[in-house]
């Protein structure tokens, strides 16, 4: 579903992605972790070309993302993305947030868009808030609406860029629950997160990135957490710091 071949990216003279390659099959849930500055967020944003790359190839469902001739809006409309800071549209109600792209991008009628949007809103348990503005919701609620907004577009894959990092600790659970449900339904997901509990529970694979944009590990969840001795020293150091003792 997602294929990345030898991708490199620079900001000026600073290299932020260094020869990254990965492959995500349909229905797989892949967690990307690593210290800050390792390029995780940049990596996930290259998949729908929010961040362009200078070298390498990226394919999503066979479409060449790196190709200048690719119709990026069309590709992006099929790739759901959830951001660290939610990025709901503050000037629109929850319902309008859910429907605007369905109508303007997919060309759905208002009734159809609304029906689909409200169904997704129900799924994340926030139907009662449909007429509110994002500013009236808690962080956790906003992030759940953001997930519903992405799902309303019927994406073939979902990208999560640190979806719980900006949340108060007690709101992390409600967002992770929604994500666990999605994974159980077979959604293809790539998740940048430090939530190792989530990685352990639902991921198939874990990718570990280190400073400078290197992919240091790309291995099955069981191997990653079960065979820590076989990990790179840098990975062990990182896990020692963030896993509960």
């Amino acid at each position: 579903m997602i294929e990345m071949k030898n991708v490199s990216k620079w900001y000026g003279a600073t290299q932020v992605l260094n020869d990254c390659s990965l492959n995500i099959e349909k229905g797989e849930v892949v967690v990307v972790c690593g210290p800050s500055g390792s390029g995780k967020s940049t990596l996930i944003k290259t998949i729908n070309a929010l961040e362009p790359v200078q070298k390498g190839e990226i394919y999503v469902d066979g479409v060449a993302v790196h190709d200048k001739a690719t119709n990026l809006p069309k590709l992006r409309s099929r790739v759901g993305m959830v951001f660290q800071h939610f990025e709901l549209f503050p000037h629109l109600t929850v319902t309008d947030n859910l429907t605007i792209a369905q109508m303007k991008v997919l060309g759905r009628g208002q009734d159809e868009a609304k029906q689909r949007g409200l169904k997704m809103l129900e799924r994340v348990g926030l139907t009662a808030h449909k007429d509110k503005f994002p500013g009236q919701l808690s962080g956790g609620q906003q992030q759940r609406v953001a997930i519903a907004r992405a799902l309303s577009m019927d994406p073939i894959v979902m990208l999560f860029d640190e979806p719980t990092s900006a949340l108060d600790p007690e709101m992390v659970g409600e967002v992770l629950d929604v994500m666990v449900g999605l994974a159980a339904e077979g959604m293809t997901m790539m998740v940048v997160t430090h939530e190792m509990g989530f990685a352990r529970k639902v991921s198939n694979r874990v990718i570990f990135m280190d400073v400078g944009g290197h992919i240091l590990e790309d291995t099955s969840k069981d191997e990653f957490f079960g065979n820590i001795e076989a990990r790179q020293p840098r990975t062990r150091e990182f896990l020692n710091k963030i896993l509960p003792h």
């Binding site: 729908n48 990026l72 303007k104 991008v105 907004r149 992405a150």
Partner: peptide, 18 residues
């Protein structure tokens, strides 16, 4: 405006004009 707002619109498939 925060850059993320533009990202969010783009990620939903909106064109520059939209």
């Amino acid at each position: 405006l925060p850059r993320g707002q533009t990202f969010a619109g783009q990620a939903l498939g909106m064109t520059y004009a939209q």
